[in-house]
Design a protein around this nucleic acid. Structure first.
Lengths: 130, 130
DNA sequence: TAATTGTACTATCGCAACTAATACAAGTAT
DNA sequence: ATACTTGTATTAGTTGCGATAGTACAATTA
């Protein structure tokens, strides 16, 4: 787990931790069943309040990304999305549209954007759904 | 200009207005030089404080999306991104990665995501850069 | 039994978002 | 010229979120 907190970012710290965990799982840097750093340990490393880490872990558990057990630790859970297919599509499309809009206003060409998309996809190809 | 404000959303109102204007421009619902609703008019329609609209317009002007003139109104400006190419790429890649990560955890397949991407792109194909 | 781990709770601080009211400056219409 | 419209600026106050701090609890591990 290598997490870089950007204090100048307007993205909340607890959210940056959630982002990092999700990213590392998607990139297979941490795998199913592996243990995450403890709340207090991560808090020490990053020099932030343990409550902030706890908040991130709590939300990750709510989302089904990890499972936690007091006395034991936090572990990477199996992937099984509890949201319905239609809702998932809605969410993703919404995010894709925002990118497209941003790209238009940045005067990025259709071809460029498509190529960048392909590059990104390649990075995660091992962990996509079946 | 048809703007829908979602008060239950955690996205700030002024940001939703910015999103809507950018979207309508990217979809060619409003075109170069056309006039936007006045601050007070929009505030009346959406039943929100004029200052909130003003804040959105001010930021849109800063980004170069619109030009405003007191006494006259706000108008759609020409598209010319002032950010460097490398920075633009960095921003877009970052957004694309976040989507990919979300998609992985939602167990969306590579093929599905790619198809959705293509669908979205098609909507905006007229307004992409050259 | 003692140490570790995640959770829960309360209190506090700082900041962003939003509302509100008002005044101002620049353009438009007559 | 005069009156109106338009975006801007300023100040003040409220609300909610993010983060910190300290403490206590429950479950697991050694």
């Amino acid at each position: 787990m290598q997490i870089q907190i950007d204090n100048s970012s307007n993205r909340p710290v607890y959210q940056q931790i959630i982002d990092a965990v999700k990213r590392d799982i998607a990139l297979e840097r941490i795998k199913l069943g592996e243990k995450l750093p403890t709340v207090r340990q991560l808090a020490g490393e990053l020099v932030i309040n343990p409550n902030t880490i706890a908040k991130a872990y709590r939300q990750l558990e709510t989302e089904g990304i990890i499972t936690t057990r007091p006395g034991s630790g936090a572990f990477v859970a199996e992937m099984n999305s509890n949201i319905s297919k239609s809702v998932r599509k809605k969410i993703v499309i919404q995010e894709l549209e925002r990118i497209a809009i941003d790209a238009v206003h940045m005067q990025i060409s259709n071809e460029e954007l498509t190529q960048w998309f392909a590059e990104v996809i390649k990075k995660f190809k091992n962990t996509f759904g079946e």
